[in-house]
Amino acid sequence: MSASLAVLVVIALVGATLLTGWLLRRRDGRARAVRDVDVRPLLVDPGARGERATLVQFSTDMCARCPQVRRTLAAIAAQSDGVRFAEIDLTHRPDLAQRLHILQTPTVFVLDRDAFVRTRFTGVPAAPAVTAALHRVTGDAARV
């Protein structure tokens, strides 16, 4: 291959990578409502569940962006009545990643009072999006 063609190929590669990154960033942290009524209650220790809702974060030891999400979610849970935060380290639970179809960390589930999964976030969720998802679960629209 000639050098000039090789340079053109690399320029195309840079462009394709930028496009991929832009698409990944657009999709990152997006909320997905879980409507499937068959989703069984997630097995979070009942003592760790919130009365009204629970934020569950899935992490691993090799997750660069999990600590920032942990701080965000813990702060939101601390400010909301009846909402608790739980973190599940998938490093120790590869079976859960399989069963819950988790392909990347952080992944965040919003559970309702009966521990059904109502919303899932893949990637780093924005704090307002988490709060909005919590309000949908708790039926409390007034709180911000």
Binding site: M62, L90, T105
Partner: peptide, 25 residues
């Protein structure tokens, strides 16, 4: 450019495939 760590994402995939990480406690 974007702060995405693809290598880190591969960790969970390796883990799911049973090639990385620790066994269930």
């Amino acid at each position: 450019v974007f702060g995405f760590c693809l290598g880190c994402r591969i960790y969970l995939l390796l883990q799911r495939a049973g090639l990385a990480g620790r066994a269930r406690r």
